[in-house]
Design a protein around this nucleic acid. Structure first.
Lengths: 132, 132
DNA sequence: ATGGAGGCTGTAGCCACTACAGGGTCAAGG
DNA sequence: CCTTGACCCTGTAGTGGCTACAGCCTCCAT
């Protein structure tokens, strides 16, 4: 079980090197030990934690939500109602974003494929200008 | 046709005062004339332009896309193919965002409503940890 | 004369990274 | 032993599109 340097960790977790250092700076990933030359040395626990973070981000959780979920994950004996709460909250946000974007898409679809030939009779410009 | 100060323009266009000054700084809204005391004085042309910008933002266009659309709107004799192109591009982005979020929503829906009682058996934490 | 609403500039903060600049370190090949 | 190139380090600044001050000045009604 040899230690991973940051490049190797980056590959194995699917997270950018710069992003790993950023997570360390904001206290999401604990500071690893260092070699004599100052290179970061990661273990399996770091890899697991970083993958947890990446999956959370893939699911669109904010950094702060992930921070809370990590705290929960560290206390397996506690009730998990809070995790459910965080997920439900996030789901609601995602659903509301979908609704917003769907309305947007409908408007854009009505707009697109302008039949005019010059800007003077362009439906898109017209809609934005809404001179009336 | 009296001049508008920034507060009045803000109300009439539905755009924040700070945002108006920001648009001026980035060159989206032209610098207005000033009173002796240095107060900004806007006219109808500013109001029209700012509303155009706001509608574009409401439709989710980026500042740069709006900059391009404004340039088009200023040249009504030119062909409007470029406006259509910008709208089609943007529509595609919106559609792809909807698709992403829909996948996300499905995943979250599967996740949510954790049946366990403690974190140790929590489906949410489990999925993120994905220890397998 | 005064008080409160509104205006001004300039800077810093938000989120979650990303992209350098300018250096140091390591391992393999010549 | 030396060089080359891949990798690592720190620190800072930039992204988009605002938003939020701090610390001033000005206008108008009472």
């Amino acid at each position: 079980m040899k230690a991973l340097n940051i490049g190797r960790l980056s590959e194995r977790a699917g997270v950018n090197i710069e992003t790993i250092r950023y997570y360390e700076k904001i206290g999401l990933l604990p500071e690893p030990s260092r070699t004599a030359a100052g290179y970061r040395q990661y273990g399996e626990d770091h890899l697991r934690r970083l993958r947890f973070i990446r999956r959370g981000r893939d699911l669109g959780f904010s950094i702060e939500a992930i921070r809370a979920l990590l705290r929960l994950a560290e206390h397996p004996e506690q009730p998990c109602a809070r995790a459910d709460e965080l997920a439900v909250e996030h789901l609601a946000e995602v659903e509301s974003k979908i609704a917003d974007l769907t309305r947007l898409r409908d408007e854009l679809q009505r707009l697109v494929h302008c039949v005019g030939h010059s800007v003077a009779e362009c439906r898109i410009i017209d809609t934005l200008a809404a001179i009336k």
